[in-house]
């Protein structure tokens, strides 16, 4: 067991107040422990934590580029192996670095089976460059490159299923987690880091600035994502779903209404068809992962 009281991500970083990714960084490091080398991809987390010389990282940390973190980690792992060293390698990358531009390096690294843990903190867009859409942006979210408008409801594409893609590479451990459930998140990280081979944990990390809500709501919104079935927390061991967080589901509207990126679905007029479509995404998730808790009627 790692000592979760140790803070390995320091104060003084420049994340927005209430940033989900900053909380993710803290919690991930608590789960990973201090015998860890972190590889960051370019993005909000890298930028808010390491303007020279003010690093927030208390563990060895390296950043090279936006799209090569898993290749850099491959080299580090190979080097550690050759030196007979025991440190664990943990990648911290945003959804853009993971779902989009880093895919070739990620696929290669997972195929090769390096012993590392890849953590995607998923804030569902390219936040560092000003909230552009990524392959992780949910359906109908308005971003600066998928804006809602008189003939658009925002992002037209569904969220890519990265966990399944990496499970299909043979990753021994794949999990989704959320900053709203810190204990579960830390436990999953610890498990991933302990598991030999390339593991993947995708952490839902709401971004107040990019999604349009007050920083104090970060956890409440992350919880709503799970309670509506739009985000599912689960584990996959050797490609099989083994543990799923079950909920008494709420209508997706309750989640959508909290964020400016979905405001066009309610104002100036309510877009019933679009909301129904998003509800169908949640329903499919619920069915696929069996998240519904059935309440007994009295």
């Amino acid at each position: 067991m790692v000592d979760k009281a140790i803070e390995l991500f320091d104060c003084g970083h420049r994340a927005c107040g209430g940033c989900g990714a900053a909380l993710a960084a803290r919690l991930v490091m608590k789960g990973a422990g201090k015998n860890t080398i972190v590889v960051s991809a370019t993005g909000c987390m890298e930028v808010f934590s390491t303007p020279y010389p003010e690093t927030a990282w208390k563990v060895p940390w390296i950043h090279s580029l936006f799209e090569n973190a898993s290749a850099v980690a491959s080299g580090i792992e190979a080097s550690l192996k050759m030196q007979g060293r025991e440190e664990k390698v943990v990648i911290m990358a945003g959804d853009g670095a993971t779902f989009d531009i880093g895919m070739i390096c990620i696929s290669g690294a997972f195929e090769r089976g390096h012993d590392f843990t890849y953590i995607c903190y998923d804030n569902e867009a390219y936040m560092n460059t000003g909230i552009q859409r990524s392959g992780a942006t949910p359906y109908d979210a308005s971003t600066t490159t998928s804006p809602s408008g008189s003939c658009s409801f925002g992002n037209k594409l569904p969220k890519k299923d990265m966990p399944q893609i990496l499970a299909a590479h043979g990753a021994p451990y794949v999990a989704t987690a959320s900053i709203a459930y810190p204990a579960d998140l830390m436990q999953k990280i610890e498990k991933a880091v302990r598991t030999k081979g390339p593991c993947y944990v995708q952490v839902h990390a709401p971004c107040c600035t990019g999604w349009g809500f007050e920083g104090e709501q970060t956890i409440a919104i992350a919880k709503l994502a799970i309670e509506t079935g739009l985000w599912v927390n689960y584990e996959m061991v050797d490609g099989k779903v083994s543990k799923v967080k079950k909920v008494v589901r709420k209508p997706v509207e309750e989640y959508l209404k909290t964020q400016k990126r979905f405001r066009h679905l309610f104002k100036p007029t309510r877009q019933d068809a679009e909301i129904a479509h998003i509800q169908s995404i949640a329903d499919k998730n619920a069915e696929k992962y069996g998240i519904d808790i059935k309440l007994k009627k009295e």
Binding site: D10, C11, G12, H13, R14, S49, T50, Y52, P53, E54, T55, A56, W57, K58
Partner: peptide, 12 residues
Amino acid sequence: RAKPGKSRDNKT
């Protein structure tokens, strides 16, 4: 490159 502890210079 930098050693840990430096972010504390930035009093948020």
